[in-house]
Amino acid sequence: MRVMLRARLDTQASNEAIKDGTLAKIVESMIERLKPEAAYFGPGEGGRHCTFVFDMQDSSQLPSIAEPLFQELGAEFEVQPVMTAEDLKKGLAAWQAQS
């Protein structure tokens, strides 16, 4: 299932992670593991944010995704299912066919 993960990194923890090189390693590791179709980084809600859109095969992946963000960066994050415009069109057509 295509999901979007959006994380707000703790400023103090991410400052330290930038200084010691941990942030770059965590981001590289996440990109290697998730193979996201999109990855974005920037400010938001008064802090640093990262957003990844990727295919989550199984909910059992959540701990391996979440723990580096929690433990190393003090992040708050959410994961939600998302669709492309093509997915929405397909879903609406299926729904209409049932009605």
Rank of each mutant, 00 (worst) to 15 (best):
G47R: 06
A24E: 09
T84P: 10
E78Y: 12
A17S: 09
K89M: 14
A94L: 10
M30C: 05
L34K: 02
T51Q: 15
R48L: 13
D10I: 01
K25T: 13
S59A: 15
A66Q: 04
R8D: 05
V79M: 02
L88I: 15
R48V: 12
R8H: 08
I18P: 04
A93S: 14
T51D: 15
T11F: 09
S64Q: 15
L73W: 00
L9K: 03
G74F: 03
A94D: 14
A24D: 06
E28R: 08
L92Y: 05
C50P: 05
V3D: 01
K90Q: 15
Q57T: 13
P81Y: 07
L69F: 00
G44E: 00
C50Y: 06
I65H: 01
E86V: 02
D55V: 10
A13E: 02
S60P: 04
A93I: 13
R6G: 08
E32S: 07
Q12G: 10
R8I: 05
R2F: 09
M83W: 09
E32F: 06
A39I: 07
L34M: 05
A7Q: 01
K35T: 11
V79F: 00
E76I: 08
Q12K: 13
A38W: 11
K89W: 12
H49I: 14
L9W: 01
Q80H: 09
A75S: 03
R8C: 07
W95T: 14
A38R: 14
E16C: 04
P63K: 02
E37V: 04
D55R: 12
F41L: 14
A66G: 05
F41Q: 11
E86Q: 04
K35P: 06
M30K: 05
E76N: 11
T84Q: 08
S14D: 09
G46H: 09
E45D: 12
Q61Y: 07
E78I: 14
L69R: 02
K25W: 09
V3F: 02
T22F: 05
E76M: 08
S59T: 15
I31E: 02
R33I: 06
A75Y: 00
Q61K: 14
L23A: 01
A97E: 09
T51M: 15
G46A: 08
Q12Y: 09
A93W: 10
K35L: 11
G44Y: 01
A97P: 00
R8N: 03
M30Q: 06
K25Q: 13
L34R: 00
C50E: 14
R8V: 08
V27F: 10
A66L: 05
